[in-house]
C-alpha cells in the first residue's frame, strides 16, 4: 500500500443504518468506523484522526449538533456531513453555521452521500496540508537566535542593512552576517520567499516598518 485510504467515522444510533452506511462508504474505497452514540465518539477522539465525520442529528443523549459544538469548542476541526431523518430549517442553519460540509436528509442517495464525503476529505486534506506547512515554517523559525529573531522582521519589512544597523545600534557588516544566516536557516531562496515564509509563520513585520 502506498498510502492509507481515508477514514470515515459514522455516528448513528440505528444499527441497521450504521451497517448499511458502513458498507456503502467501504464500497467507495474508504475505511469506516461506526459509533452508536455521540458520547462514545467524544470519549475516543484523542485516539482518532478522522478524515470525515458522518453524523446523525437526532441522537439519544448528546445530539449531533451538540457534538459539533463540543468539538469546535475544544479546537478539533473536522469536516462533518450531517444526516437526519427529520430535519428542520433551523437545524440545518445551525449545522451549516457550525462549519458542516453538507446537511442531508435520510434516506440519502449514495452519489450524494459519497460526493459529500469526498468533498469533506478534500477539505480535510487541504486543512492538514496547510497545517503541516505552517508547522514546518514554525520549526525553522525556532532555530533562529534571539538577535536573528529581532533582525528578521526588519529585513522582511524591506529595510536596508544600513537602516537596520542604525536602528539596532550595530554595524552594517554584522547585519549582513545575520541576514545571510537567516536566509540559510529559513531555507529561503530570495527575499520574496523569506517574506512569504515569515507571513505564513505569523511574523508581524508591519509594525517594524512604521518605525
Amino acid at each position: 500500500m502506498t498510502e492509507e485510504s481515508p477514514i470515515v467515522y459514522v455516528v448513528d444510533d440505528d444499527p441497521s443504518v450504521r451497517r448499511s452506511l458502513s458498507r456503502l462508504i467501504r464500497s467507495a474505497g474508504f475505511r469506516v468506523e461506526t459509533f452508536a452514540q455521540a458520547q462514545d465518539f467524544l470519549d475516543q477522539k484523542e485516539n482518532l484522526d478522522p478524515n470525515c465525520l458522518v453524523l446523525d442529528v437526532n441522537l439519544p443523549g448528546l445530539s449531533g449538533l451538540d457534538l459539533q459544538k463540543e468539538l469546535s469548542s475544544k479546537g478539533y476541526v473536522m469536516p462533518i456531513v450531517f444526516i437526519t431523518g427529520y430535519g428542520t430549517i433551523p437545524m440545518t442553519v445551525q449545522a451549516m453555521k457550525g462549519g458542516a460540509v453538507e446537511f442531508l436528509e435520510k434516506p440519502v442517495d449514495h452519489q450524494v452521500l459519497l460526493n459529500a464525503i469526498r468533498q469533506a476529505i478534500k477539505k480535510d486534506r487541504q486543512m492538514k496540508q496547510q497545517f503541516n506547512e505552517i508547522n514546518e515554517i514554525r520549526q525553522r523559525l525556532a532555530t533562529l537566535t534571539p538577535r536573528e529573531k529581532e533582525v528578521l522582521p526588519l529585513v522582511v519589512s524591506g529595510m536596508l542593512n544600513k537602516q537596520i544597523a542604525f536602528k539596532l545600534g550595530t554595524t552594517e557588516k554584522t547585519i549582513k552576517v545575520h541576514r545571510s544566516r537567516i536566509m540559510e536557516k529559513m531555507r529561503a531562496d530570495s527575499l520574496a520567499d523569506l517574506v512569504r515564509l515569515a507571513q505564513k509563520g505569523g511574523i508581524d513585520f508591519q509594525k517594524s516598518q512604521l518605525l
Binding site: D14, L21, L24, S27, V108, H110
Partner: peptide
Amino acid sequence: TAALAHELNQPLTGILSNAQAAQRF
C-alpha cells in the same frame, strides 16, 4: 407525523444504503 417520519426513515435509509452498496459491490 414527525415521530413516524423519523421512525420510517431509519429502515428506509437502511434499505436504500444497503441496496446501493450492493449495486456498487
